[in-house]
Write a protein that binds this DNA or RNA. Structure first.
Length: 252
DNA sequence: ATGGCCACCGAGGGTGGA
């Protein structure tokens, strides 16, 4: 079983990249974020023609998440129950007995922004919800754009402070880990300076001035089955790329 | 080494992303 997470930064613009990538990578499940399209504009025919089912939770202009899968998703749910939010950031479904969540965590904009306060409140609600979900679904993957570089090694050495690396954000990430979730990427030896996002500006990709902010956290029951996790930098090298690149894992 | 890019909407430049 191969599962990926990819913030495509506009599904409409990135659809050709996605379709090419699906054909090459043959992933069983792909969690997408930042669709930036309404449900009625979701390119379902193209996804199905590629051999995938799709479940999505979209909105105009901003946010939007999807799960596309070879096998049809069961028991699809959207958003965080009990957390009033206009922003479409969560979709969950059961595929092959595993609960899969595609999540687009808030960015936060700046440490002194209301959006940063919202980010931390959202993380608290997510964590409380997941505590229950893990009881219901022992086999679970939380995949997405976390907008948090969890540790110092997950940020370029010159990226020392501010949004995405702040201590409150990292503490919130650790709260997820404290539920028992495991960062699949760190189960394996990885190259230094492995990142999943690079700013479009400043030739950041060329300089590898990036952050590892896209993650696949797996439940304790699933973690022992994971055989591999890696970042595929190839799509970031294409013309007109997303600023994020796919992160994957495989389990037996 | 964060203004400099990209996508959105909509017809200008403002907003948001990370």
């Amino acid at each position: 079983m191969k599962i990926a997470t990819w913030n495509v930064n506009s599904l409409k613009v990135r659809l050709p990249h996605l379709l090419d990538w699906l054909a090459a990578e043959q992933a069983d499940v792909v969690c997408l974020q930042e669709l930036k399209c309404e449900d009625k504009a979701f390119p379902l025919a193209e996804i199905e023609a590629a051999g995938y089912h799709a479940a999505f939770n979209g909105q105009k202009t901003y946010n939007g998440v999807a799960i596309i899968s070879r096998a049809e998703a069961q028991d699809v749910s959207r958003d965080i129950p009990g957390f009033a939010d206009e922003q479409k950031r969560i979709i969950a479904a059961t595929i092959g007995g595993v609960r899969v969540i595609s999540a687009y965590f808030p960015n936060g904009q700046a440490l002194d922004s209301d959006k940063y306060t919202y980010k931390l409140a959202w993380l608290e609600a997510l964590t409380a919800w997941l505590k229950d979900e893990l009881v219901r679904y022992p086999q679970l993957v939380l995949a997405g754009d976390y907008n948090i570089a969890p540790e110092e090694r997950d940020a370029h050495p010159d990226w020392k402070e501010g949004l995405l690396v702040s201590e409150p954000e990292r503490t919130a990430f650790r709260a997820l880990v404290n539920l028992g979730l495991v960062d699949a990427f760190r189960l394996f030896e990885q190259a230094e300076k492995s990142y999943s996002w690079w700013d479009y500006r400043m030739m950041a990709f060329r300089r590898n001035f990036g952050l590892r902010i896209d993650h696949l956290l797996v439940s304790p029951a699933l973690a022992p089955q994971v055989t591999r996790s890696w970042i595929d930098k190839a799509p970031r090298k294409l013309e007109r790329p997303s600023d994020h690149t796919p992160v994957l894992l495989e389990w037996a």
